[in-house]
Nucleic acid binder design. Structure first.
Length: 210
DNA sequence: GACCAGGCACATC
DNA sequence: GATGTGCATGGT
């Protein structure tokens, strides 16, 4: 599946950040929770217009201003608090997170991210993979649909997050770049072929053609 | 007006 | 562990 998608689409260059800054990826991961990416992007642009392009600058914004800026991404009451907490976390830990680490350490980092209210497994893994280049596979709604409909993983749509993640990671090389591309390609596939919750129109993948 | 979009926390059983 | 609910906006 990966090879076919890669041959068809090529590199996806994720995370789709405009500035390429690590913090923008982290903030984007929170803002895009259960909302369309374009809305998260609008929220990021609003933050930028308010001069909040770093965690320090975000923390300097009054809460009401922060909420107004991220409004397009929805859930602004919760996301604003979460962004502040993650900004604080980022300032405290960014240096030690910049370099690759041992699996034990990676689990510890994940646990610390998960202790932040508003950061669940998908968000924590997105941050670790896309902002900090750690080899961890992201499971999202798209991945579940593709896993159930095309990879024949039974009940993938409702399978516990960690279990589905293990299925992917045990059957793939431990390769950050591969995890990065594969997830991005799955999202691309779903967007191209209308793999919505109730939409079963699915592409047939064979011989390098979707 | 219904459904959906790169979730999450919390309550309840 | 599994399921249901509230959170909120904007596009189709």
């Amino acid at each position: 599946m990966y090879k076919t998608l890669f041959a068809y689409y090529g590199e996806q260059h994720w995370w789709p950040s405009k500035s390429g800054m690590q913090w923008e990826i982290v903030a984007g991961a929170i803002l895009t929770q259960n909302c369309a990416w374009r809305n998260a992007e609008q929220a990021l642009e609003n933050l930028s217009e308010h001069g909040a392009e770093t965690p320090q600058q975000l923390l300097a914004l009054p809460l009401a201003t922060l909420r107004k800026a991220i409004r397009p991404a929805g859930f602004f009451m919760q996301k604003s608090i979460c962004l502040q907490e993650v900004a604080q976390f980022f300032i405290e830990h960014v240096k030690e997170y910049t370099f690759p680490c041992q699996p034990v350490e990676l689990r510890a980092r994940r646990k610390r991210l998960l202790s932040i209210k508003g950061v669940g497994k998908e968000t924590a893994d997105s941050i670790l993979l896309y902002a900090f280049n750690q080899p961890i596979f992201v499971i999202d709604a798209y991945t579940r649909r593709v896993a159930e409909r095309h990879l024949n993983i039974l009940q993938a749509a409702t399978l516990a997050y960690d279990i589905l993640q293990k299925i992917f990671m045990k059957n793939l090389p431990n390769d950050t770049q591969l995890y990065n591309e594969y997830h991005a390609l799955i999202v691309r596939l779903c967007k191209d072929f209308c793999l919505k919750q109730r939409c079963l129109c699915a592409p047939v993948l064979h011989d390098g053609h979707a």
